[in-house]
Design a protein around this nucleic acid. Structure first.
Lengths: 130, 130
DNA sequence: TCTATAATTAGCTAAATACCTAAATGTAGG
DNA sequence: CCTACATTTAGGTATTTAGCTAATTATAGA
């Protein structure tokens, strides 16, 4: 039961559910893209993704400094659950809009995206001085 | 998305998942039976059940002072999700044992069960005086 | 080796949540 | 109407969790 509970818990946060929605549409996303999509600090994204990987819902692969995440399709028992979520996505306009915004953020490369995030973070920190 | 999230959240607590498991096996259970099964205070059970009803996962009916709960089978979109949970129950020995314990607790009537709970509560309170 | 960089971990805080007891509410029965 | 009783609501506490900044780790490239 602990395993079922951790799977469900891994999807029971707003941002983590958004990650799942995004990965149902895009086969694979980089951590920096997910960070951009969620609009939170990179550390927060990292924490969420770790939880989802540990629950067995996501998989990750590393390519140099870049970490990519995908839905874990290796476990067939999860397929009905992902189907159900996928169906909820299709029925919900709000989610579709959310994913449309994501699509727009994906037009630039991870390198460019990460640079923007760095600049944004530096800007916020310098404002903190005031 | 809020609706999907509240459905998932309603199942993301250990005791609430146990309620769902129990109601997948027993068509209907009374609040006092669920309280007995969960082993928590009646007020806690009430709170959990309310959340599950509000999420649309459970339904309830009142018969005098007795409140009965069932899985909400009126919403066909939830059927795949319940199927998935049901399948998890069948694959997990721990859950089966949990449900076996429930079956033993169901042999006495709600009236008797509630009386026991009242006595137990009074006993705990008198011990508190020491 | 050193600098740059993507992601993770550490440490902290505010918010959310599960649990309890006591009080209140709704229902039954004399 | 009053007493009994099943459940819910109120109020409070301990625990868990999401979010942040700073520090650290792992990787790339000169």
């Amino acid at each position: 039961m602990d395993k079922t509970l951790s799977i469900i818990k891994s999807m029971s946060d707003k941002n983590r559910l958004r990650v799942l929605n995004a990965l149902l549409v895009h086969n694979e996303l980089c951590a920096c893209q997910i960070t951009e999509f969620l609009g939170v600090a990179g550390a927060t994204t990292s924490r969420h993704l770790d939880l989802m990987v540990n629950a067995g819902v996501l998989k990750k692969r590393k390519q140099g400094r870049w970490i990519y995440f995908q839905i874990n399709r290796d476990d067939p028992s999860l397929t009905p659950l992902f189907r159900w979520v996928e169906n909820r996505v299709e029925q919900c306009e709000q989610v579709k809009e959310d994913l449309q915004v994501l699509k727009q953020k994906l037009v630039i490369s991870c390198k460019e995206l990460s640079q923007k995030q760095r600049e944004r973070s530096a800007c916020a920190n310098s404002n903190k001085g005031e």
